[in-house]
């Protein structure tokens, strides 16, 4: 042991850590170590378990039709709710609108987020990086409702954009409560998520790899296409999955910027649960949404392999 003066004391942080370790050793002795991993994921497993319980409950009510006389769910099971949902033109339109919306949002968000994330990673000037980060997070801090309200102020019939247009003699246009407005709001909402998911993937690509591609004869476009995009694939797929699932199931943006005319699946489900109080039909729609999302994620994993999210394993 090294010689220490009599009044020597270890730093407070070390003593605290040692105390915590000693305590942990009491509560969870070393021979239980093989189970430590399981202990740590138990809370997460419990949460997922609760979700599964809820899903079973929903599955149960999706099989019971609403008795319009008593306003109670029927006793016996039938597939009537699913038949009704699948036969209805309204729900078909809503489903198509949601799927197309999710696809458009994903594509546009990735297309915008990639250059943003690239600039964030590659800029040499710290102040540029800071400015880009603040610009990215500012709308994030504001919250979805306030942000949507902001769009009402800016894009409304007598909003700022229309006032500016009238100055140059353009008649006021309806910029809100239509499909493009919803997609616009959705992309704006998803952008920070996508950028943050892509940044680690791009940061993992050494700048010298791009320089090398240049010296081998690739211009910037080909370097991006043949080197940067393939190497950033885990980040792109991760970001794409998150954006696609979030926008497929989004409720707030279609509700606020669509003004009731641009419902997505989540809005239809909301209506069944909280307006019409037809729990059965709502549950059937919810299950179909879960199925659509699962199929989407499953397809991505099937095509690209779970390994593409850089979770180890090559495929």
């Amino acid at each position: 042991m090294p010689e220490t003066p009599a009044d020597f004391r270890y730093p407070l942080r070390w003593r605290l850590m040692d105390g915590i370790e000693a305590l942990a050793d009491r509560i969870w002795p070393r021979r239980l170590a093989p189970w430590t991993g399981w202990l740590l994921i138990t809370p997460a497993l419990l949460l997922v378990g609760l979700l599964v319980l809820g899903l079973i409950q929903i599955a149960d009510s999706s099989l019971r039709t609403l008795d319009t006389a008593t306003f109670l769910p029927s006793e016996d099971w039938s597939l009537a709710n699913f038949e009704k949902a699948l036969a209805s033109r309204v729900y078909l339109t809503v489903a198509w609108r949601s799927l197309l919306g999710a696809a458009l949002t994903t594509f546009l968000t990735l297309a915008l987020a990639f250059p943003y994330a690239y600039a964030l990673v590659r800029t040499r000037r710290p102040w540029v990086r800071k400015a880009l980060l603040i610009t990215l997070f500012l709308p994030f801090f504001i919250g979805q409702v306030v942000r949507a309200y902001g769009w009402l102020i800016i894009l409304g019939n007598s909003g700022m954009v229309n006032e500016a247009l009238s100055l140059v003699g353009v008649a006021p246009m309806r910029l809100l409560f239509n499909y493009p407005a919803v997609i616009f709001g959705m992309v704006q909402y998803m952008l920070p998520f996508a950028v943050l998911l892509m940044v680690p993937a791009l940061a993992a690509i050494p700048a010298e790899t791009e320089t090398a591609a240049g010296s081998l004869g690739a211009n910037w476009l080909r370097t991006t296409w043949h080197v940067v995009l393939p190497m950033a694939k885990p980040g792109l797929i991760g970001a794409g999955l998150v954006v696609a699932t979030l926008s497929l199931t989004d409720f707030a943006v279609p509700a606020m910027l669509g003004g009731g005319s641009q419902d997505f699946i989540a809005n239809a489900i909301y209506d069944q649960f909280f307006r019409t109080a037809d729990q059965g039909l709502g549950s059937a729609l919810a299950l179909m949404l879960v199925a659509a999302g699962s199929v989407l994620v499953g397809l991505v994993f099937l095509v690209f392999g779970a390994g593409t999210l850089s979770m180890g394993g090559r495929r």
């Binding site: 010298e208 790899t209 320089t211 591609a213 190497m231």
Partner: peptide, 9 residues
Amino acid sequence: FQKLALFPH
């Protein structure tokens, strides 16, 4: 390059 900069993909 000093760090090779091969294309891993």
